[in-house]
Design a protein around this nucleic acid. Sequence first.
DNA 1: CTTGCAAACGGAGGCACCCTCCATATTCTA
DNA 2: TAGAATATGGAGGGTGCCTCCGTTTGCAAG
Lengths: 207, 207
Amino acid sequence: MQGANDEVRVKLGDPAGRARRPRADAVRNRERVLEAAKVVFSQGGESASLEAVAREAGVGIGTLYRHFPTREALFEAVYRREVEQLVDLVQVLKAEASPAEALRLWLRANVAFVATKKGMLAALALATQKNPDLMAYSSDRLTRAVGELLARGVSTGEIRDDIGPEDVLRALIGMCYAQERPDWQASVLRLLDVFVDGLRKPGRPAA
Amino acid sequence: MQGANDEVRVKLGDPAGRARRPRADAVRNRERVLEAAKVVFSQGGESASLEAVAREAGVGIGTLYRHFPTREALFEAVYRREVEQLVDLVQVLKAEASPAEALRLWLRANVAFVATKKGMLAALALATQKNPDLMAYSSDRLTRAVGELLARGVSTGEIRDDIGPEDVLRALIGMCYAQERPDWQASVLRLLDVFVDGLRKPGRPAA
DNA sequence: CTTGCAAACGGAGGCACCCTCCATATTCTA
DNA sequence: TAGAATATGGAGGGTGCCTCCGTTTGCAAG
């Protein structure tokens, strides 16, 4: 029923027997859609229509759905890229500041990062609620990231040891959601200072 | 131009000369829609259709729109009721606990309250971003509420004086948004403890 | 009670968006 | 260069949003 026809796949230089490599136009269009989605979502958030994304990308709506079968799939792909940037920042800070200070700086960097993506945040709140896997990924990446900063502080005795990286992350993400006032950034920065002070071990006052 | 005809209005017992009182069925239907919306939004969040709300309420879609011209207006009306309950709680706690402890308890009560309304939270995030007035109302009410608790602590010297009620509220609301894990409540409660510790004046260790 | 009308009702209809499907076009391998 | 595999894109059926207006209902005066 299927003997000789398998040659086609075997000949393509993929030892695992997978299909041929993706076509060039498919790769290009996938990239275009991602780029367009980043722009459109940043402005209009969840309410932005996928047809607007396709239009912005210069592809048909069918092509968009071929690459990203659901709204969540597209959103997730866009979001993953953003997370990587934050993860990479940790290594830089570890080399440049003391444990508690590096933690504070990383948290502050997150605030600045978030500030440029207003439209995406409400959408993210929805997406993570509907699709736990998306949160699992970013949680994992960011938890490890902040975990490195935290562990360093614990090992030097500068930071208390009964708060985990998940807790810190929750506080950060949470605070940034409430961004309605003109001065929200200043408020979040103050809150982060209070929070980091609270994280210091008792008997080691902040100033 | 308008002499004798005003009698109709004057007779209705409204000194300001407003129109006659609303019809009974209008009042009843408005109530039904609000009740239905509370149910439907709590389940499906923002994605729930307004036509589903109308169906649940047993009224026509037109009637729903007559009372609440936009999705936001309906959502806002539902939300206002919820806020009142939290505001009222403050008076109870003020009578029952020390300043910092009352603050801690009130924040914890919020967590429990939020826990029953998962579906509405993401919707709320969207609504407040689109409609600043909704946030203005709840912010105002809740800020005053937490402000009472906070001021009491500041006056007794138990709580530092450089953090405003807005900041506390932001921390609370923010933390509660990140509710994806099974144990999110425990995490938020731990965070609140850290936060309240951070609020205590230096030189007054927590335990 | 009945009459008249302002107020409220409710759903049909036009529009935008969601997503699927498939005839056509493009790329890749041999 | 040919032909098969792969990708494209937009038409179309379905659903929800919101408006508009003919019909119904409650209210107050007679």
